[in-house]
Design a protein around this nucleic acid. Structure first.
Lengths: 210, 210
DNA sequence: GTCTATATTGGGATAGAC
DNA sequence: GTCTATCCCAATATAGAC
C-alpha cells in the first residue's frame, strides 16, 4: 500500500489527514502515535495539534471526511426510492444502502473507504460511540422503516435483528475484502458487493420452511 | 460489570488472566497497559512478566484459554455429525459450528466468551494474525468441506463467500449482543443465537429467484 | 502557520534483593 | 514466586520564538 504522504504536495492539513487515515487503518487508533503520523506526513509534530487540537479530534476529522458523503448518499438514494410510485423490494433498499460504494467505482474513494469504515467499527465502543452517534443519526432508522415497508409481515424487533446481522456481513466484507483462501482484486470489489447483496437479501427475506 | 479481580482468591497467574481479559475486552489491546492489568488483579507488575514474558504473550494466553475449548467443541460436533449415516443439512452444520456457545449455557463462560471473541476479531490484523493462525488451523477448512457436502450445487468459491458473510454476522452478534434500539438480557443470548441461525442458513442456502 | 524545545506522564521491561 | 526500584523510551500536549 502506498504511503499517504506520497500522494503529492497537498496542504499540511490534508497531508496529516491522509497519513493518519492510512496508519489508523493499518494499526488501529491506540497503536498509532501522533509522531508516526506526522513523520509519515512529513510535517512537524506541533502542526497536528495546531490543526486538530488532539489525537481524538484528528480521528474524528479523518472519519468525518469519508463518512459524510456516504451517509448523504444513502439518504439521497432512499429519497429517490421513496419518490417513485411503484413499491420497492428488499433488494432495492439494500442497493440504496450500498449505493455510495457502488457509485464510487471510478473514484479513488474505494481505495480507503472500506478499510476505514471496517476499522472504525472494530475499535472499542468507548472510542467509537462519540463518533458514530454524530454521524449516523437517522440513517439507520430510516432504512429500518423502509425495510419494514418492503417486509410488512416481519415484526419490527425481528427486523432489527436481521438488519443487525446484515451490518455484520457488510463489515466483514469491508474489513477483509475476501474470504480466507481467496484473493480479491481491487477491481473485484463491486463484484463482491453483489455477492453480499445476494446473501443479505436472502437473510432479510428468509421464510423458515424446515 | 464485575471486575475480574473480585472473583475470589485464585492464583496470581489466574488473577492476571482474568483481569487482562476483562480490560482487553473493554478497551482493546493497545489501550490497555500492563500496569492497569496488574493493578486490577492486585498483583505486582513484575509478576506479569514473570508468568507471561511479555504483553503480547499474555494476550495469547488470555485468548487461548477461552478459544481452545470452543475449537475443540466445534471439531467434536462435526465429528459426531459425520459419523451419523443420514445426510446432514446446512442447518446441522451451522448448529455444530455454534454448539460450543449453546453448550455453555449453564457455564459462566457465556459471560465473557462472546465479548472476547468479538474483540479479538476486531483488533488490527497485524496483531491477530499470529493468534488466529495458531488456533484456527483446520477448523474453517473442515466446516467448508461439510458445507460443500450439504450444498453440492454451490461452487466452492461461492461457498467461501457465503461462509465469510456468515462469520461476519456471527461476530456482529458476539460484539454487540443486540441491535440498536433493543436490549438483550444475558439469558436471551441463546435466543439470539437462534435468530442468527435462521439468518445465516437463509444466506447460505440462497437461491436467487429474481 | 510552522518550528524548536520541553513539560509531564505513562509505557514495557528488567535487575537483583528477599 | 514475589517484591522494590529503576532503566529507557515513547506518548500527548504546550509554550514561545520566528
Amino acid at each position: 500500500m502506498p504511503v499517504a504522504a506520497t500522494r503529492g504536495a497537498s496542504s499540511t492539513r490534508e497531508r496529516i489527514l491522509d497519513a493518519a487515515e492510512s496508519l489508523f487503518i493499518e494499526h488501529g487508533y491506540a497503536a498509532t502515535s501522533l509522531r508516526a503520523i506526522t513523520t509519515a506526513a512529513d510535517v512537524n509534530l506541533a502542526a497536528a495539534h495546531y490543526h486538530f487540537g488532539s489525537k481524538f479530534d484528528l480521528l474524528a476529522a479523518v472519519f468525518h471526511r469519508r463518512i459524510e458523503p456516504v451517509e448523504r448518499g444513502r439518504l439521497e438514494a432512499l429519497d429517490a426510492l421513496e419518490r417513485q410510485e411503484a413499491p420497492f423490494s428488499v433488494r432495492d433498499v439494500v442497493y440504496a444502502f450500498l449505493s455510495p460504494m457502488y457509485g464510487a467505482e471510478a473514484d479513488d474513494l474505494l481505495d480507503v473507504l472500506p478499510d476505514l469504515i471496517g476499522r472504525i467499527y472494530a475499535e472499542p465502543e468507548s472510542l467509537t460511540k462519540p463518533l458514530l452517534e454524530g454521524e449516523f443519526s437517522g440513517v439507520a432508522g430510516r432504512y429500518l422503516t423502509a425495510l419494514g415497508q418492503a417486509l410488512p409481515d416481519v415484526p419490527p424487533a425481528e427486523l432489527r435483528w436481521r438488519f443487525h446481522f446484515t451490518i455484520g456481513a457488510m463489515i466483514q466484507l469491508l474489513r477483509f475484502r475476501a474470504p480466507l483462501g481467496l484473493t480479491a482484486e481491487r477491481a473485484d470489489f463491486v463484484g463482491s458487493l453483489d455477492r453480499l447483496v445476494d446473501y443479505v437479501v436472502a437473510g432479510l427475506e428468509q421464510e423458515r420452511t424446515s
